[in-house]
């Protein structure tokens, strides 16, 4: 496949998925039993007022036209106004998303930095006790509901042991002490050189990130193990051993180098599921990110905000697919020369 065709194909599927995403959110927006007109005019309005407002917000138009209008607005970054905050939803999301990103990035780092090595060890020790142990640890990880693990974590490490700070992103006394640059509180504190804020932020971050990290570790370790077992059976491994390389080099450079090709997709997927897990984790930890924002909107019937959040997470999903497509050539020379 030529480079141009590859890029076109990826773009085509990105655009299509995006259209699908907007159609689904549009559909959800219309299925919802609340009458948006009624919400604006109130139950006592006259039939004429009702009809006027209905026409004003375009609900009398045919569905495809309504969808087209919706799509145009979304493409202009207009997700409507939040009922709770009375701000544009986009603005709200830009405010809260960095908190989610900070959490998810650290969790992903933990998941990859521990999950990949554990998966490799598990594969090379197949059938021996380290393998059994690692498989057990990861089985527990993907069998545990994250919200429950979060609560148990809080109970143990915050309430009983006092090792970490409690819910929230920072203690009240440290709020708004550092200027927002990246939105990632730990990074902003470092940029500002404010040690206290940094330490406090880390104390808050470490538990939720470790818990999310554990869940992604479980999945990444499991997938790494299975990819590594596949690679270790290959002939090139025999050749690498036959030329006298140390087994560690054969495993970590040769086999793992090939396993990365498959792992990229897994890691992208994991990052996506971390954003999802954020809804639950942020609820448990009162973490002021996108998940908590969506959850609060949900219970205040703030549909614009819920759909905006869905769209944002869906959009990040699409981007992740795109990024993993673009990353392939970095680890796989076959994809490079095809490009």
């Amino acid at each position: 496949m030529s480079a141009v065709r590859r890029v076109l194909r990826t773009l085509f599927s990105v655009v299509l998925t995006f259209l699908g995403l907007t159609m689904v959110t549009f559909f959800i927006g219309r299925v919802i039993p609340i009458d948006p007109v009624l919400a604006i005019v109130g139950p006592k309005a006259s039939v004429e007022t009702y009809a006027r407002v209905r026409a004003e917000i375009g609900l009398d138009l045919p569905l495809p036209v309504q969808y087209w209008r919706y799509l145009t607005r979304v493409l202009h970054g207009d997700f409507g106004t939040s009922v709770i905050t009375s701000q544009p939803v986009l603005q709200d999301m830009l405010n809260v998303f960095p908190a989610t990103l900070e959490l998810a990035l650290l969790a992903l780092f933990i998941g990859v930095a521990l999950g990949v090595p554990l998966g490799v060890v598990s594969a090379t020790q197949r059938g021996r006790w380290p393998d059994h142990l690692i498989r057990l640890v990861s089985l527990f990880g993907y069998s545990m509901p994250v919200f429950w693990l979060g609560l148990v974590g809080l109970l143990l490490f915050y309430a009983k042991l006092g090792w970490v700070a409690g819910p929230g992103r920072i203690d009240v006394g440290y709020e708004d002490l550092v200027p927002t640059v990246t939105g990632l509180l730990t990074v902003d504190a470092l940029l500002d050189g404010n040690r206290d804020v940094f330490i406090n932020a880390v104390q808050h971050l470490v538990l939720p990130a470790s818990i999310l990290g554990y869940l992604s570790l479980a999945y990444i370790a499991r997938m790494t193990r299975s990819f590594m077992l596949g690679q270790l059976r290959q002939e090139y491994i025999l050749a690498a051993l036959a030329k006298g390389l140390r087994p560690a080099r054969v495993v970590w450079v040769h086999a793992l180098g090939n396993a990365w090709v498959q792992l990229i997709t897994v890691i992208a997927l994991t990052f996506g599921s971390l954003l999802e897990g954020a809804v639950l984790t942020e609820t448990v930890f009162s973490w002021p990110g996108l998940g908590l924002y969506m959850k609060n909107s949900l219970f205040n019937a703030d549909l614009n905000a819920v759909l905006g959040g869905t769209m944002l997470v869906g959009f990040v999903y699409i981007l992740l697919n795109l990024v993993s497509d673009l990353l392939y050539p970095l680890v796989d020379p076959r994809a490079r020369s095809r490009a």
Binding site: G20, L21, V24, T25, E276, V279, L307, T310
Partner: peptide
């Protein structure tokens, strides 16, 4: 593929909300 590319819990959330 379109449905496969969707965030599962978040979509379920939006549906459940609707």
């Amino acid at each position: 593929d379109i449905f496969l590319a969707f965030p599962r819990l978040v979509l379920a959330l939006a549906f459940a909300a609707a």
